[in-house]
Design a protein around this nucleic acid. Structure first.
Lengths: 234, 234
DNA sequence: CGGTAGATCTCGCCC
DNA sequence: GGGCGAGGTCTACCG
């Protein structure tokens, strides 16, 4: 099968899998995609459906059992995830609308301004950290994960930089773990830390200060302005 | 306006807000909800739309400017978030299908098996932690957040329990912060920690052990089996 | 309103 | 496939 199928129906829904969830009888939009995934939307909420089944899955439509038939169920949709025990059971009481549409393959979303872009720009403009700074490398791998940026300051000391769009307490914990590890290496030690983000929350700033970590607030628009115009995505 | 509007159209999309994102020309499903929110779905992916605008928002349809008109744009949708500068611009090249449906208010999802349920069960079955354990209280508030469960062991010592469905390294960090704080209170100290989860990842277990935190794996189905049948949701 | 933490998180990368 | 981190995270809850 190909394309997306749209159904408006009065239905109730039960999900059994990582947890259990139930939707009482109401009119909803059911979206069935080609990969067997199903989304159940109401009029409202955000982009997250009320309930759903992730792909890959298979939809099997059956007649309701006698008990359900007596309650007014017209047909039962069994949506079974292909790789797990996750299951969605949709009881259709009334079919109000139905249509199918072939959309074709989507070229996909192009993003600009995510953490990776910020990292690229800061690596290019490493002297934002201070005069005489030089880049050692981005995504410096360690046993417990990658350090966003490793640099050298004007006196030759190593600096580990943790980069966030929004600087939260978790980011400080993350950088702390990296610093602990890096400072165990006598060839690397002493390594100091810089917590750089577009916005740093007060509590994160306090925790960073408490641990001797410097904070740096970044202006993405200004950094992008410095960047070569040709390298922009659009 | 009321109800959900479904449009199949050849379109391109630009989002400008917390970041920038672009969708090249392709055929997609546009879902416009009563609160002005818009979802842009392709045939594939999971429940997350390719692009979207969260409510509350307003949709304003205009004629394309001359440049866009020459490129084949039939109409331009401006979706403006009501409370921020977030904006979605949808360029409609071809309207392939259109329908509107009144869904009414949804009664909403009923869940069973989330962390709150696990917490309630563990509080009721506190001796799962060991013989002679007694509950002090759930959601014990501190300045840095709530401790999931505070209990007393058979020797009268205080135990802080951090509960997760999936025990990750972050949960151990979280519990460590709580223990640090609680142990600063001489009336409370010494407080030891227990990290309880349905599944505990190896790295989290190692970190917990390193910090003198006990780990406990929980069997939700067994715990629910012990629970009074009448208290179940469905 | 900000801070904290959960989520059927989803998504993407890299080992 | 598992582990790890980002996300326009979103969402609920509590101060």
């Amino acid at each position: 099968m190909q394309g997306v199928r749209l159904v408006i129906a009065r239905c109730s829904v039960d999900y059994i899998g990582r947890l259990r969830a139930h939707l009482p009888l109401a009119t909803r939009l059911l979206m069935v995609k080609a990969d067997g995934s199903v989304l159940i939307h109401s009029d409202g909420g955000s982009y997250k459906p009320l309930n759903w089944m992730s792909p890959p899955a298979t939809l099997r439509v059956t007649a309701p059992d006698q008990a359900d038939a007596l309650l007014g169920v017209a047909e039962t949709w069994n949506v079974q995830h292909t790789k797990s025990d996750d299951r969605l059971v949709i009881s259709i009481y009334e079919h109000l609308h139905e249509s199918s549409h072939d959309l074709g393959v989507d070229p996909g979303l192009v993003k600009d301004g995510v953490e990776a872009d910020l990292q690229r720009l800061l690596a290019e403009q490493i002297t934002l950290l201070g005069e005489g700074f030089s880049l050692i490398r981005r995504e410096y791998m360690t046993a417990i994960g990658p350090v966003d940026i490793l640099a050298r300051d004007s006196r030759g000391a190593t600096v580990a930089i943790e980069l966030k769009r929004r600087g939260d307490i978790d980011g400080v914990e993350q950088l702390t773990r990296y610093l602990e590890l890096l400072n165990r290496d006598p060839l690397m030690s002493p390594v100091r830390g810089v917590f750089a983000a577009q916005q740093i929350k007060p509590q994160a700033r306090v925790l960073a200060q408490d641990r001797g970590i410097d904070c740096l607030t970044l202006d993405y628009d200004a950094m992008r302005g410095v960047d070569d115009v040709d390298s922009r995505l659009f």
